[in-house]
Amino acid sequence: MKPYTPITASLLAILWLCAFPINALAAPRACVATDFTAFLQAFSQSLDVQRQASTGRVFSTTVEVAGDSAQPRVRVLHGDELALPMMPAIADSGMTGVEVQRIDPRHVRVDDKRAGNEAIKAYLFEYAECWTLVAMEDWSVDERRLTLSGRPDMSRAEEICYLKSGIFQGLGGVERYPPTTEFFEAALQNKLCAAASGNPQASLEAVSLGFSGMAPALSAELNEKLLTRAAETLPVAAALLARFYCNGTDDTRDGPCLDPARAEAMLIKSVKMGGWETLPMLASHYEQGDLQGRDLSRALACYQLAREKGVEGYVDSVQRLRDQGAVPGAACY
């Protein structure tokens, strides 16, 4: 994934505020409605009203895709440069999926989530003589502009999902845009899509994002299923599966390991696959005796092996165990 370079929220705010005086001058004299709810209903249902409300300049933010990365792009559009309809009609029966935020008496933000978290559109309106559109955002990703590598471990649809997951996670990661929560949710859904046929990396990333707290937590059953797939080839996934066997879906849990035998087996599997960073974790469990019994000699062997493999920071652990009487010569696993 290429570096993600977002436009700052402060710049978006400056551009939006700069639009206000100009749109106030260009506002139509005959107002459709002064009540915002009535205006929004009319705006969504009538192309004429959309044209009237956007006669001044409008700052348009879109997601510009370049290969496997993307960043927001802001353009200044005028009148006939705006594609119509700008907003799908809102039914008279309700506002389901449409969120209205009154910033102050003259400024309102509308988030349209009816098309899902992958295609959120936002509209910023100002009231001067009438309600006018001053900015709009389209956070959808144009799949046609994604560069696919034809990965042998994913179908075409799964690779599209995988690329989109990275883009949405990048948008959410900077935490500068209002739909940050929705970006992480979209990222998770796309990672699950990419993992549909068992891709280990996509499976691992889906679980990790769910554990992060930035996206909704996955069920215990789905976590185990995804991690079991990923642990077949990825050492870090085997180590994470060991944590899952100890703590379930609550990574903050404080108590004895729920399934010590399987947890130990996964830690050993991680090491056998070359996950040397797992060695201190395995050594610590042997030293503390919180899996299948305390074994200082095996703990010493694991710490020594970690040092041999270049894992930093465990020289003191080797000496500490020797001082406690750990006998060299045992096998770590």
Rank of each mutant, 00 (worst) to 15 (best):
R320T: 07
A19I: 00
E182H: 10
A299C: 10
A194L: 07
E158S: 11
T147L: 04
V110S: 00
T233I: 11
V98R: 10
L241R: 09
L279M: 05
P28Q: 07
S10M: 02
Y286S: 11
L15A: 10
L258W: 08
C18N: 14
A331K: 15
W276L: 00
T37H: 15
N117K: 12
D35G: 01
F125P: 03
Q324V: 04
D35C: 01
A53N: 04
G173E: 08
A330W: 04
K2C: 01
Q324E: 15
T180P: 02
T61L: 12
A196Q: 13
G210S: 09
C302V: 02
A33E: 08
S44T: 12
L218Y: 15
T180Q: 05
I90E: 02
R51Q: 11
E159Y: 08
L25H: 15
P152A: 11
Q201M: 04
Y162K: 10
A265D: 09
N199P: 09
A195G: 09
S10T: 03
H78S: 13
C130E: 08
F39S: 09
A27I: 03
V174D: 07
M86Q: 14
G310S: 05
R73T: 05
F183R: 01
V311N: 05
R145P: 09
L47V: 05
A26K: 14
A195F: 06
T34P: 00
L148K: 10
R298W: 04
G94D: 03
G329I: 00
M87F: 15
C332N: 02
P85W: 14
A128T: 14
Y314V: 07
D112Q: 08
L171C: 04
E64N: 12
G97Y: 14
G310I: 06
M281K: 13
A283R: 14
G56D: 11
L204N: 07
G166L: 05
L15N: 09
K309Y: 06
A89R: 04
G274A: 06
L218C: 02
Q201W: 13
W16E: 11
Q71G: 05
T181M: 00
T132A: 07
V315P: 01
T34Q: 02
V315F: 10
L321P: 13
V236E: 15
V76T: 14
A26I: 02
S44P: 08
C332K: 06
R322V: 00
V134Y: 05
D316R: 12
Y177G: 01
P105T: 07
L15H: 07
A215D: 03
E81T: 11
Y333V: 04
C31D: 12
Q45K: 10
E64T: 02
L209W: 06
A261M: 03
C18D: 15
P28T: 06
G56R: 08
D68V: 07
C302N: 10
A13G: 02
A128N: 09
M136K: 11
P105K: 13
R307K: 08
P216S: 07
M154A: 04
A301F: 12
F36L: 00
N117W: 13
G172F: 01
L267G: 09
T132M: 06
Y162F: 15
L279T: 06
T96D: 12
Y333E: 14
L77Q: 14
L267S: 06
S203Q: 07
T249R: 09
V32W: 07
P179W: 04
L218K: 12
V58T: 03
D295H: 08
F43S: 08
